[in-house]
Simulated scan of single mutants.
Amino acid sequence: MLQYVAEVASENVHQYAPGIGNLSLRQEILTHYSHLNYDESQLLVTQGATEALSLVMQYLRYVIHDDFAVMAFDPVYESYKHLPRIFKLPFYAYEKLDFEKEELEQYIQNNKIRVIFINSPGNPFVYVFSEQQMNDLREVCERNDAYLIIDAVYRELWYEEPIYLPEKELSVNVFYVNSFSKMLSITGWRIGYLFCHKKHAEVLRDIHDYIGLCVNAPLQEALSRYLKSESFGKMYVERTRKLLKSSYEQMSNELVNLGYEVPKAYGGYYVWAKLPDKIDGFQFAMNLYEDESVAVIPGMHFSDRANDYLRFNIARPKNEIAKGIEKVVKFSRQYFS
């Protein structure tokens, strides 16, 4: 990919890109999703998935005129709870990942929830929702005039089986957000995209024009050339899946042997682990960093119920993972004794 960055650096691609995205990049994305028969008007290239999420949130705040609330599943990725805070909307963290459809629908109605964020695989806990759960969520949203915002940034990084998302023939109630950040390990490039129903497209583009304008022009061009030559990054993604699965198994096995509880994950970048004996995760994380220079994220960052949890990032080279595990094992044994 870097060869294409060097290639475009001396070319005439350093002015504003089209607001809707580099035209060649848009074509690569549309070709990748051609089996879904999306119209080009439904696609918008954004400054990472983060801009797409906030763009949809701002749009829905504009078009929903009644008081409403926002929901995501606990533990919650930070953007899902802070975007409602910024827009002064109530937020609810639903605690049952293995939800019952009728119970969830009643919860949505009782709390006036009109927007639901979902990621699968998740962050911090890499939970994968089943096809039935995803379809149930879509149906509940459609019946209750609520909107489902699918954050699909980890969808290609599965360990066992591909991830199902209700993306076919996007209904008015479903927004689909994705990014190249995690898939291709280019989080600093900030290139994402959004698919929506045609009904929403014009206003979303209008908002984007005045708060995002466009995405980095040279990097979009470089990415477009890479995707075209490398079958949308197929080989890189396949290697990354294998690396992540191996690192997950290595890290989780070591943590379990130390007394942590590690729920099974089926993809993604992280190990979500519960400390033994209700040890305070924040203090543990601070001490681990001070003593061993290993950074983990305390669970309290994602949930009020996760004070004794930690999120470990396994999206690093094997030698770094091995060294990190060695330091975590050493520190944990001392801390638990």
Score class of each variant (00 low, 15 high):
F129Y: 10
D98N: 15
T187W: 12
Y159D: 11
E105V: 14
C141M: 05
R190M: 02
R155F: 09
P121L: 08
N119S: 15
D151K: 04
V172Y: 15
L194M: 10
L137S: 04
I191G: 06
S120G: 02
W189H: 10
Y127F: 00
V126K: 07
A93R: 08
L83E: 11
G192E: 05
P90K: 06
L165G: 02
F175K: 00
F117N: 10
P166S: 09
P162I: 11
P162L: 11
Y94G: 07
V177A: 00
E102T: 12
R143Q: 09
E160P: 08
M183Y: 11
I113Q: 04
E139P: 07
G188Q: 09
Y94D: 08
E105M: 13
K168C: 10
M134V: 06
F87L: 07
L170T: 03
Q109N: 13
V140R: 00
V174A: 04
G192V: 04
I149T: 00
V177Q: 04
R190I: 00
I116S: 04
P75N: 08
R155K: 07
R138Y: 00
N135K: 13
T187C: 11
F175E: 00
Q133V: 00
E78I: 15
W158V: 08
R190G: 01
E131S: 07
L104Q: 07
E160N: 15
N111D: 13
Q106H: 13
S179W: 10
N144K: 04
E161Y: 06
N135A: 04
